[in-house]
Computed example of a mutant assay.
Amino acid sequence: MHTKNDDKRKPSEQILSVLAKNVKTLRVKRKLSQEQLGELCDFHPTFISMMERKQRNVTISTLEIVARALEVEAFQLLMEQ
């Protein structure tokens, strides 16, 4: 059963889109496959794919791990470019 509080815990479509676009753009710019980025982060490649397809709500610590692997600051992954 879903409650109103469930919706409060979902990120906005806008922030998911910005994160997805930035992760993919930076990954491609660094010539990394989803598998390679996953290895750098110690995440399964499917997790990286789901981030890039706006299907994952990530934690701040996950954001920091991905940012470190992409050689940017975590906040940069959430900024429109």
Rank of each mutant, 00 (worst) to 15 (best):
E13R: 12
S33E: 08
S12T: 15
L63F: 05
E73W: 03
V58T: 15
A20E: 04
L26R: 11
R53W: 02
E80Y: 08
V18Y: 05
D7H: 05
T59F: 07
R9V: 06
A20Q: 03
H44D: 11
V72H: 07
H44Q: 01
H2V: 09
E39I: 11
E39R: 04
L70R: 11
E64L: 08
L26C: 00
Q81K: 11
M51K: 00
M50W: 05
N57Y: 08
R9M: 13
S33N: 03
R56F: 02
V18D: 08
R56N: 02
L16S: 15
S33M: 04
R30L: 13
K8N: 13
L16K: 07
E73R: 13
S49W: 03
K31H: 10
D6S: 10
Q76C: 06
S12R: 07
S17D: 13
Q14T: 13
V58M: 04
T62N: 13
S17N: 09
M79E: 15
D42F: 02
V18W: 03
E73A: 10
L77E: 05
S12H: 02
T3L: 14
I15G: 00
S17R: 03
T59N: 01
E64C: 11
A67M: 07
K54D: 03
E39P: 03
T3A: 09
N57C: 13
R9C: 07
L37Q: 12
Q76D: 15
F43S: 03
H2I: 09
L77K: 07
A20F: 01
K4F: 14
E52P: 01
Q14L: 12
N5A: 15
K29N: 10
L70W: 10
R27C: 02
T59L: 05
V23S: 00
N5I: 15
E39F: 03
R9A: 12
K29Q: 14
I60A: 11
D42G: 09
S61V: 08
E80W: 04
L63I: 07
R9N: 13
F43H: 06
E71Y: 10
E73F: 08
F43G: 06
N5Y: 14
G38L: 04
T46R: 01
K31C: 03
L16N: 02
G38T: 06
F43Y: 15
L40M: 12
Q55A: 14
A74Y: 14
L70E: 10
R68L: 12
I65Q: 11
L32K: 10
T25N: 15
I48V: 12
R27D: 06
K24Q: 12
A67Y: 08
K8T: 09
K8I: 13
K24G: 00
H2Y: 14
P11C: 07
L19W: 01
T3W: 07
A74D: 12
I60Q: 07
R53C: 05
V58Q: 05
D6F: 15
I65W: 07
L78N: 04
R68Y: 08
L19C: 08
K10S: 03
S33D: 09
P11A: 04
F75K: 04
S33A: 10
N22Q: 13
E39G: 01
E80L: 01
I48Y: 00
R53G: 05
L78M: 15
T59Q: 14
L63Y: 00
L77H: 09
F43Q: 04
I65T: 15
L26H: 03
V66Y: 05
M51T: 01
